[in-house]
C-alpha cells in the first residue's frame, strides 16, 4: 500500500463511488485502480459527501469504523476510521421494529453498536472518554448496515475511508438516559439472525469502551477542523462481527437493559 497517492484525482474517485452507490454496482478497489493512499482518502470521502449534500443529502452524525483489534489487524492500522451518517439511509424504528429495503445496498452486513446523542459540543485534542459521557445527552442501541462500494469487500484502509467508512445505513432503539450511567464496557449484546445467535459481544469490544471510541473521534475531527455538535449521532463501532444480510433476513438485537430491536430486510 503506497504511503502517498500519486496523481490521484479526488473528484473522479468521489464521482466513481457515488455512481457505485447510486447504481449499486461495485467498483475495483481504489488502491488498486488508482493507487489511492491514506493521505487523500479522507479528501475523497469529503468530496463525495459534498456532492451528496449538493443534491439534498443531510449529515446527521458520524460513524466510527475499525474499532476492533481484529479489524485493525486486518487493515494493518492501529487506529479506527470514521465516516458520515447520511440522513437518507436512516431507517427509523417504530416500537422496536423496522423494515429495511435490502435492494438499496450492494453487499450489506449487519453490525450491533452503541449510539451516542451528543448534547454539548465536543472538541479538542485531549478529549477523554469521561468528557464524552458527560457531553452525551442519551444513548441507544443501534443496528448499522455496513456496505461496500468496493467489489467483494476487497478493501484496504484508503478504500474504506474514501468509501465513507463503508457506511450503508442505520436504525436505532429508543434514546436512553439510563445507558449513560451503565458501564458500557460490560454491557452485553446479542444478535440473532433468523433465530440463530450470530453475535455475543460486550461494549469493551469497541476500542475498550464505546466512549473511548467517541473520544478518539472528537480528537480526530478536531484535527480536521470539525467538531461534534449538539444533536449529532455517533455510532461508536461494531461489537462483534459483521453478519452478511439478505432479503428476508430478520435480525433481533438485544442489549443490557434495553428493549429488543428487530430489523427485517424486505
Amino acid at each position: 500500500m503506497p504511503e502517498q497517492s500519486v496523481g490521484v484525482d479526488i473528484e473522479t474517485l468521489a464521482r466513481r463511488l457515488d455512481e457505485a452507490w447510486e447504481n449499486r454496482e461495485p467498483i475495483a478497489p481504489l488502491t488498486e485502480s488508482d493507487g489511492l493512499a491514506v493521505d487523500h482518502s479522507y479528501a475523497v470521502q469529503s468530496r463525495w459527501t459534498e456532492m451528496r449534500l449538493e443534491r439534498g443529502e443531510r449529515i446527521v452524525g458520524r460513524k466510527i469504523g475499525l474499532t476492533s483489534p481484529a479489524m485493525q489487524e486486518q487493515m494493518g492500522v492501529n487506529e479506527p476510521d470514521y465516516g458520515s451518517l447520511w440522513a437518507s439511509r436512516y431507517f427509523p424504528a417504530t416500537v422496536g421494529r423496522v423494515e429495511i429495503p435490502a435492494d438499496v445496498f450492494l453487499q450489506p452486513r449487519v453490525e450491533g453498536e452503541i449510539a451516542f446523542l451528543i448534547g454539548r459540543p465536543l472538541e479538542g485534542t485531549n478529549v477523554t472518554p469521561q468528557e464524552v459521557l458527560v457531553a452525551t445527552e442519551a444513548l441507544a442501541v443501534a443496528v448499522e448496515v455496513v456496505d461496500s462500494r468496493i467489489e467483494d469487500w476487497r478493501i484496504k484502509l484508503p478504500d474504506t475511508i474514501a468509501d465513507n467508512a463503508s457506511y450503508g445505513g442505520f436504525t436505532l432503539g429508543p434514546w436512553s438516559r439510563a445507558l449513560r450511567e451503565t458501564d458500557l464496557r460490560t454491557l452485553g449484546m446479542l444478535i440473532h439472525q433468523n433465530g440463530q445467535p450470530v453475535v455475543q459481544a460486550i461494549g469493551a469490544a469497541a476500542l475498550g469502551s464505546p466512549a473511548r471510541a467517541v473520544a478518539w473521534l472528537a480528537n480526530k475531527l478536531t484535527s480536521f477542523g470539525v467538531r461534534l455538535e449538539p444533536g449529532d449521532i455517533v455510532l461508536s463501532g461494531a461489537l462483534g462481527r459483521a453478519t452478511p444480510a439478505q432479503k428476508g433476513d430478520v435480525f433481533v438485537l438485544e442489549a443490557y437493559g434495553q428493549p429488543p430491536l428487530t430489523v427485517t430486510f424486505v
Binding site: T186, G188, M189, E254, Y256
Partner: peptide
C-alpha cells in the same frame, strides 16, 4: 439486575 443473558463479563 436485568436479564442475566445480557450481563457482560470482562
Amino acid at each position: 439486575a436485568p436479564d442475566l443473558r445480557l450481563v457482560g463479563a470482562l
